[in-house]
Design a protein around this nucleic acid. Sequence first.
DNA 1: TATTGTTATACTCTATAACTATA
DNA 2: TATAGTTATAGAGTATAACAATA
Lengths: 173, 173
Amino acid sequence: MSGRSNRKKAKDASASVDGETASPDFGFLAELVSFHFRMLSIELNRAYDHSFADTPLAGGTGKLSTLIVVANNPGVSQTSVAKALDKDRSAMVKLVDHLEAKELIVRHPSPKERRTYALQLTDKGRSLLDQVTNIACRYDEDFFSVLTDEERDELVRILKKLRRHHEPGTAGL
Amino acid sequence: MSGRSNRKKAKDASASVDGETASPDFGFLAELVSFHFRMLSIELNRAYDHSFADTPLAGGTGKLSTLIVVANNPGVSQTSVAKALDKDRSAMVKLVDHLEAKELIVRHPSPKERRTYALQLTDKGRSLLDQVTNIACRYDEDFFSVLTDEERDELVRILKKLRRHHEPGTAGL
DNA sequence: TATTGTTATACTCTATAACTATA
DNA sequence: TATAGTTATAGAGTATAACAATA
């Protein structure tokens, strides 16, 4: 939390005067890890939308991740899925609504708990998941294909380490 | 784009049957780099909102980044800022509207280009930026404080490498 | 024709609050 | 009282299309 000041005050290339240089000066923004993280996050989401454009799961990653969690945990409740994906209960309602409307998921009445639903994939949902699994893996491979295997492993390791310290609830990965 | 299959088929801990285990099975989602990236991204954004809650720049990172880019490139046009931050022109309009309404930024008429505005910070904007700079740096430090210096440097290096290959336009970092 | 700023539209995501029915 | 699902609302982010003024 302290004693870390090995930041470069580079600011080399683009010292703009009238503000209309090709690549503007980002100031201390370029020194923030979170800035680079966020900028890449934009590209990652864009690549996702592009890869899944011709798919019923197009538009945000919520549908795919929900479908996968339900597929691997038949009978889950909405709240469980929401917690797993770090989403809100109310957000999950709309996601399940959407997936149910497309007949990919069913809300079964839960046997023990009359408050909850037991979510399950339909045959159509299972079939679709089989199809998009290839797209998802290729999308992920392609996006990070620039990295060496060592860099990729290191990135995953660092991401998991960060998640362990920032996710209060489900830090069991 | 090929020849990379060192994925572990771990799936150790939580093999749920009724779907109501503490931590559900994420299936192949847990094998995607993008999944871990996205999950951490949620926490990063949450941490930002928390850090800037008592600030005129609360609610999204767009206001802060815009303020910084304008501060470091006095006289930039809206489109330039939009391109730099990888945003849409129409999105930038609302951001500048918001910052202008709070008297942090002014839209000066551009001397040469009558189509464009020359954006500049007001004294109030400069003053605010001075204040929030500390918050921004502390927010970034704190979030990644779990990492060693070497891990942090490696993370930044990998992020920049990925950005270089995925940002078509402004890859000059 | 191309570009800048703008407006309108639409959908995702996130967050909050309040309601219902169960427990 | 606590929880699961729901509904409503709100703002941020992203994307597209179209328009007027200007180049």
